[in-house]
Design a protein around this nucleic acid. Sequence first.
DNA 1: GACATAATTCGTTATCTGGCGAATTATGGA
DNA 2: TCCATAATTCGCCAGATAACGAATTATGTC
Lengths: 123, 123
Amino acid sequence: MRQFMDITKALADETRVRILLCLRRKPLCVCQIVELCGLAPSTTSKHMTILKQAGLVDFVKRGRWVYYSLPGDDAPALVHETIAWVRQSLARNKTAVQDARTLKAILDEPPEELCKRQMARCC
Amino acid sequence: MRQFMDITKALADETRVRILLCLRRKPLCVCQIVELCGLAPSTTSKHMTILKQAGLVDFVKRGRWVYYSLPGDDAPALVHETIAWVRQSLARNKTAVQDARTLKAILDEPPEELCKRQMARCC
DNA sequence: GACATAATTCGTTATCTGGCGAATTATGGA
DNA sequence: TCCATAATTCGCCAGATAACGAATTATGTC
């Protein structure tokens, strides 16, 4: 039950659902996710921790960069079924479609530029 | 997105998930649900309102009694898929199994007795 | 109509959650 | 070694949520 409730609580926030959907195609680094959801890096990081705790995402560190992705085939069936359910439920959702467009633009820009812009915004 | 988030928020509470699972076999009246989850009638009623708002349950009034049930075939596919997902995810869950046992005992007793006991408890 | 009672609504309280900025950690480059 | 910087953790605040008991609503019975 614990694991299931971790998952439902993780999904009970729109930002986290949007992030999950955006990881569909490829791993994203934190600065890209920050750009996507328009929140402070600290807040975004917290969301990623909650998703990780629920087992809904994985991450790898590459130097100073952290890449989050959907979990691999070795993850529990529950996790895969959950992601499938979310994806199916929101397949034609307006917000999700818009996010996919935004993501495309973000991926066109080198991550370093994103980070610099985010730094400039708050300091 | 609104409807989906209503559903995930409804599922982000263990009591509500347990109630949903217990409705599997047959409709239950509020006093039975109160007995099952061990909370105050007012609290339980609020939970039922949230589940109803999310579309995850229906209810019918029979005189002074209100019976909650899983929604019928005319409910949106999203609702049925959600319930299927929850059921599958917790099929062998310990809490769910225990609740099923408790429910069996509750169904053996006439609802009137339950209501009287609940009344005695708080007044 | 008056009363009993199943359920809900209301008002209050304690806890949880999501948000931010500041401080900290950890890594690559000068 | 020292600095720059990507990310996280910490400390705080505002708003949401779950719990209760009291009051209210609605329905059946006398």
